[in-house]
Every structure is written in C-alpha cells, then in structure tokens.
C-alpha cells in the first residue's frame, strides 16, 4: 500500500502534531460523539477479546456457564464476560503444555512450509507480471490487470472446492501432467502434496493482489533514474538490479509482512483439503489446530494459550522483517 497507507503510517509514528493542533477545532464532546459508535464496538469486540484471550490462557475449563465473571455497564446494554464452568486457575500450565505439544510444533512447521512454498513463487510471479504491465510496450493493460485481480474476489471456501475437484483422482491436474509425461500425483491424500496444494491455491488467489501493489511501487520510481542509467549504458538486467529492486524495498516489505500474517491465519484452505480426505497431520495449520482445540475438544484455555503464542510469533516475525529491511 504505497502512498495511501504505508507512507502515512510512518508519518503517524513520527508526526507533526503541533502543526495540526493550531488549525483543528477543539469542540468539547463533538469528536467523541462521532467516535463513540466505532469505539464502543472496537472496545467490546476487539479490545476486550484481546485482553480476555490473555486472561483465559491461564485457566483450564470445559464448557460455558451463564454466570458473569464481571460485567461492564454501558447504559443501554450490559456486557457480561462469562464465567466458565469448572473454572480453574492453572498458572503457566497451558504454556508448559504448549512447549511439549508435538502437534503444535507440527502445525507450526506445516504453516512454515506452506509459507516457504507459497511466498517465493507468488512474489516472483507478481513481480514479473508487474514489470510487464509497467512496460511501455504492453497493450490492453487494463484488461490483463482486471483478469489477474479477479481471484481476490473469489469466495475462499468455494475456490478451495474448485481446486479440490481439479486435483482429485482422475481430475484435470492428473491429465494435464499426464500429457507431459508425469505420472499422476496424489494431491489430496499424500501429505507432502496436500500441503503444497494449499500453498498453490494461495498463490492463485493472492498473486494478482500483490501484483497491483508492486505495480503501484514501480510507478513511483522516478523515470530520471532510468534515464541516467541508460546514458551510462546500463543493460536491462543491471537497471533492474540496481534501480528497480532497491527502490521497491518498502513495497516488498509490505508484501512480505501482509503475506506472513495471511499465511499464519490460514484456515479455510486446509479445512477444505482435510474435510475432503487430506491427511490431518501434514496439512493442519496452526489456526486449524487452535480451532480443533477450542471448538472440537472445548479446551478454551489451552486454545487461548496457543493463540497468545501465535500472536507473539507473528509480531516477532513482522518486527524482524522491519529490521532486516
């Protein structure tokens, strides 16, 4: 998100608020009135759950009771934080269990492998497409752009179903591979391939989206840089390496950070692959595991601890990506 989001984001962090303070009106109450619907919902459905997850991760229990643990009175409606049946404080037990939970590690590993397969392929495709679409010679840019962006609007579960049908035994994937002499691949029930299938599905969905973001980045590069390089006799590849890539760095950072978050919350695709016969152990992503723990086994406390761990992992990875760049 080039100018509109990324740059302002950095601006907000540093900021020239003095300047704004003189000019903007300070009417008592009015801004709060405008903000109240948003912040009421934000507080109830985002802020409280964030802290509540952390709180729950120190408890163990099964099932939900209707008694309130504590209540917040917001006038028209009482928001009650429910107490759990058999609520029991266990300290760090959930976290200790997590450290020795092989399924947790396996699902993290699966998520990481999906990331490693998906990201290079997707970024290479998106960058290549963006370069061609940015070139002066290319015609019908608008049409190509629209077509390539279409997958973003595909319903996640529905498109996963399409890929299952293509990859199923006797499906089109086998036949296409057979045509170039490759024997059929067991896409769904073989662990290795089922995991790759999840990655390929995501490549299909997100390449166009990232292409648009990279394209925006390419268009912000000043043409004078290229002109100077041409006078110096630089080849296309040299220009790409020494001008395009360094100039694209902030955009690439954005692509990597959003993709990391996207991969770590992947749920629909593995769920569909698993429910059509994929091997649980190799395709279970971390969010899928949390869902199983919390809503199939009803171990909400342990599920919360897993959630906290995952948030910590995502934050750390994002920070590292910011630091490295």
């Amino acid at each position: 998100m080039s100018r509109q989001l990324l740059v302002p984001l950095l601006d907000q962090v540093r900021f020239k608020r003095e300047q704004l303070k003189d000019r903007l009106p300070t009417l008592p109450g009015t801004p709060l009135l405008f903000l109240s619907p948003f912040f009421l919902l934000f507080g109830v459905f985002l802020a409280i759950p964030v802290f509540y997850t952390f709180y729950l991760s120190f408890f163990t229990f099964q099932g939900v009771s209707t008694e309130a643990l504590f209540a917040i009175d917001v006038g028209a409606y009482q928001i009650m934080i429910p107490e759990m049946a058999n609520l029991q404080y266990v300290g760090l037990d959930n976290y200790r269990r997590l450290l020795t939970d092989s399924v947790f590690y396996q699902s993290l590993l699966n998520t990481a492998i999906i990331f490693v397969v998906q990201v290079p392929l997707m970024v290479a495709l998106a960058l290549g497409l963006a370069l061609v679409l940015n070139a002066a010679y290319t015609r019908y840019k608008g049409i190509f752009r629209s077509l390539l962006l279409l997958p973003v609007s595909a319903n996640t579960v529905a498109y996963s179903a399409v890929f299952i049908v293509i990859a199923a035994e006797g499906g089109l994937a086998d036949i296409a591979l057979g045509a170039i002499g490759i024997p059929p691949i067991d896409w769904i029930s073989d662990g290795f391939w089922a995991r790759n299938l999840v990655a390929f599905m995501s490549v299909w969905r997100w390449t166009g989206y990232n292409m648009i973001i990279i394209l925006a980045g390419l268009q912000t590069i000043s043409p004078s840089l290229y002109e100077a390089a041409e006078i110096g006799g630089a080849t296309k590849i040299q220009k790409f390496r020494h001008i395009t890539l360094p100039q694209l760095k902030p955009i690439m950072l954005f692509v990597f950070v959003t993709t990391t978050i996207g991969v770590f919350k992947k749920f629909a695709e593995p769920m569909i692959v698993i429910s059509s016969g994929g091997p649980l152990n190799e395709t279970r992503t971390i969010v899928y595991y949390i869902w199983q723990v919390a809503f199939q086994n009803l171990e909400l406390g342990y599920g919360s601890a897993l959630t906290v761990a995952l948030v910590a992992i995502i934050m750390t990875l994002s920070l590292i990506q910011f630091k490295v760049s």
Binding site: F45, L46, I48, P49, V50, Y52, T53, L56, I261, F264, K265, F267, V287, I290, W291, A294, F295, L300, G303, S304, T307, L310, V311, I314
Partner: peptide, 8 residues
Amino acid sequence: PTNLLVIP
C-alpha cells in the same frame, strides 16, 4: 489476525 479472536 482477526481469526485469532474467535475464542473470547
């Protein structure tokens, strides 16, 4: 990731 607030 919003998916993660599902439990609370």
